[in-house]
Design a protein around this nucleic acid. Structure first.
Length: 342
DNA sequence: AAACAGCCCAACCGCGGCGAA
DNA sequence: TTTCGCCGCGGTTGGGCTGTT
């Protein structure tokens, strides 16, 4: 690979792997307030130990407020199939035709489900064409067990014409329109699968709920998935992060994204945050930061900043509050429940 | 109930494109 | 025109989940 470009960041200095709730919250709070003009600088400004690419990916694929969660509709699936036929693996291009869907999501869906569906369809097309041409497919497939698809992966997941014949020849013959039937089956299978993805979200929620129930137990110790990091609270409390070379006030965010009513308000989310507030207490948080306030004020003077109040608890209570920032749409937390005690 | 295998998807990686200097 | 730096894209990976034996 030669001397390539220098790495985008010092890998030893950045955190990798699943995002914690605290990191998510920090990223959301920061972007909602300051926008994301410069991904490379953002982690530093937001006080995140992540590289810019990681932040961008997390935001674009998971935290963005306009994301459409849940199963793909039949229309969406059809659109993807058509666009893939036209553009190939141009996932971002395909995603641009599907509002609320990310290229990563579509790519994953394609690689896990839709590719199979397409393969099935093609298999049947070949069989159908050969039938139309008056070619008897049976003998060739019977005499030669060689699959049509030589691709190893495909061989694993799709029935070849050969083994299809072996397995279901009579069934295929009896179906009025086998192609349509299989397509329908594939689609239903796909929808089931995506529904299961939804169930996963539900599972995530239930895991969070479980944690909440744990937290409600008297005398139980609540293990917060938060690192001890005052910068986070600074952001939420509208205290600028003090860095050596970055001026938050210069970060462009004049047009914050619309975080209005689009997202689904999750009662569990609120409950979690409410408990969080109770357990730690806003006063306690502010108390903790008291010592930093002088530093904050100095920084503000130094940087010539004029920050608008960004009250964490107001944010969370939105949209009931007057705040135009809303965290309620966030799915809490995909990367967390497997190990809630982090 | 435990072990295993396969699936799913969030996250990472490296490269290409593009604009600025 | 060249070089540099950033962003975004597409491919790949790895850990968790689920189904099967």
């Amino acid at each position: 690979m030669g001397n390539g470009r220098s790495p985008c960041c010092d890998k030893s200095q950045v955190k990798r792997g699943p995002w914690s709730p605290a990191e998510d919250m920090r990223l959301i709070a920061f972007i909602q307030k300051y926008g994301h003009d410069n991904w490379r600088a953002l982690p530093k400004q937001a006080g995140l130990m992540r590289c810019g690419k990681s932040c961008r990916l997390r935001w674009v694929n998971y935290l963005r407020p306009d994301l459409k969660k849940g199963e793909f509709t039949k229309e969406e699936v059809e659109t993807i199939m058509k666009l893939h036929e036209a553009f190939g693996n141009k996932w971002s291009k395909i995603a641009s035709h599907l509002p609320g869907r990310t290229d990563n999501e579509i790519k994953n869906a394609w690689n896990t489900h839709l590719k199979k569906r397409l393969a099935n369809k093609k298999t049947l097309e070949i069989a159908s064409n050969e039938n139309k041409m008056g070619i008897s497919i049976a003998p060739s497939f019977i005499s030669s067990s060689k699959p049509i698809f030589l691709n190893e992966t495909l061989n694993q997941v799709i029935p070849t014409v050969g083994n299809m014949y072996d397995m279901e020849a009579s069934e295929v013959a009896m179906v009025k329109d086998p192609e349509e039937d299989l397509e329908e089956k594939s689609f239903n299978e796909f929808v089931d699968i995506t529904k299961n993805s939804n169930q996963l979200s539900t599972l995530v929620s239930s895991n969070v709920n479980k944690s909440l129930q744990e937290a409600e137990k008297p005398n139980s110790v609540v293990e917060m998935p938060m690192e001890e990091d005052y910068d986070f609270w600074k952001i939420l409390d509208n205290i600028p992060i003090q860095t050596n070379d970055v001026q938050l006030g210069q970060v462009g965010a004049s047009n914050p994204p619309n975080f209005g009513q689009e997202g689904v308000q999750d009662a569990e989310t609120k409950k979690y945050l409410h408990d969080l507030e109770n357990d730690f207490g806003s006063d306690a948080t502010k108390e903790t930061n008291k010592d930093l306030c002088v530093e904050k004020n100095n920084a503000m003077v130094e940087l010539g900043m004029n920050p608008q109040p960004l009250d964490f608890y107001e944010i969370i209570r939105s949209p009931e509050s007057d705040s135009d920032i809303d965290l309620g749409y966030v799915h809490w937390w995909s990367s967390w429940p497997q190990n809630p005690g982090l």
